[in-house]
Design a protein around this nucleic acid. Structure first.
Length: 293
DNA sequence: AAGTTCGCCAACCGCCGTGCC
DNA sequence: CGGCACGGCGGTTGGCGAACT
């Protein structure tokens, strides 16, 4: 039998669905060996997992909450898409991967654009990599946007992965100020109220509610199994767990830079970036080096 | 209106771990 | 114990439609 590749046809899907109904999602290679489909077992499994499995949120963009979860868990687990996907009902590892990939591309494009703009202003004297270096925040932070009609008046919620109880409200233009990343414990604690982007296919449903804008789980590899899995009865207790930050704990986190951060704008999450004032990046180069902070 | 860019998505590829013989 | 098949996973690519120029 000649192996077929490429897009799946409706008839193939039907056969695959029928097979899974009868035999369950296993023994993928026998689909080929029995002559049911001219597809590899791998291909059949992938098709089932990514498209045919029930309860998948197909054709539904990531909600703000889902974005937040992905960002936080990616900072914790790295590119463990399958693991991250277990925290997002109806999402596959491929979904998460694609979401992240698009996000990274967007960031790269934004940085490149800002570099080009800056280089032109400085007659090409500024090194292209400098802004990226400057933007390496000393603390792991998560940014959430407040919706506002004017980008000038927009504010952000800035929280710290190491201490999610501390939340700063920051005017958007100040977002590039590295001083923001210092953790001042005497700041007032603000209540976090997550916004939910409507999604009808199906309704958004998470295996857990986040007690904080950022998950604060122990990051040490030996503690990673403490991360709650679906259906864990101690879910909330475990998420309530906090570990006292060590002196160099920050280096274990990935940094969610402001423009990596998601937007709470339920209509257009990407507008966070798109709404930046065009001269916003100019401020970056005037920042002192990290050793001066 | 045509060309280009971008975002999204589906699917393939290669690597690795595991279980079986 | 080594080879093999298989499944799982992460990285990558290519197609397509929408938005933009």
């Amino acid at each position: 039998m000649v192996m077929r590749k490429g897009p799946w046809m409706a008839e193939e899907d039907e056969i695959l669905m029928d097979y899974v109904k009868k035999h369950g999602p296993r023994d993928w290679s026998s689909i080929r060996s029995k002559g049911l489909l001219p597809r590899t077992g791998k291909s059949c499994r992938l098709r089932w997992v990514n498209k045919l499995k029930p309860d998948l949120k197909t054709g539904c963009k990531f909600s703000a909450e889902e974005e937040r979860v992905v960002i936080d868990l990616q900072a914790r687990f790295g590119n463990k898409w399958a693991r991250i996907a277990t925290y997002l009902q109806g999402r596959t590892d491929n979904d998460v991967k694609n979401f992240w990939s698009t996000r990274q591309k967007r960031l790269a494009r934004i940085l490149q654009t800002s570099n080009q703009t800056k280089s032109q202003k400085n007659n090409g004297k500024a090194p292209a990599s400098r802004q990226v270096t400057t933007l390496e925040a000393p603390r792991p932070v998560s940014i959430a946007m407040e919706q506002s009609s004017s980008s000038q008046n927009q504010t952000c919620q800035l929280s710290y992965l190491e201490n999610p109880d501390v939340i700063k409200m920051v005017p958007l233009p100040d977002l590039m100020n590295p001083g923001l990343f210092s953790l001042e414990t005497n700041l007032p604690q603000l209540e976090f109220t997550p916004t939910e982007k409507p999604c009808t296919d199906p309704q958004p449903h998470f295996p857990f509610q986040l007690p904080h804008p950022t998950l604060d789980l122990p990051l040490l590899p030996e503690n990673q199994d403490l991360v709650p899995e679906l259906g864990d009865s101690n879910l909330m207790d475990m998420f309530g767990h906090q570990e006292t930050p060590g002196p160099d704990r920050g280096s274990h986190y990935s940094v969610n830079l402001p423009f990596l951060g998601y937007s709470d704008n339920p209509a257009t999450p990407d507008s966070f970036i798109d709404d930046f004032p065009t001269d916003m990046f100019d401020y970056i180069e005037s920042l002192p080096s990290s050793s001066e902070w």
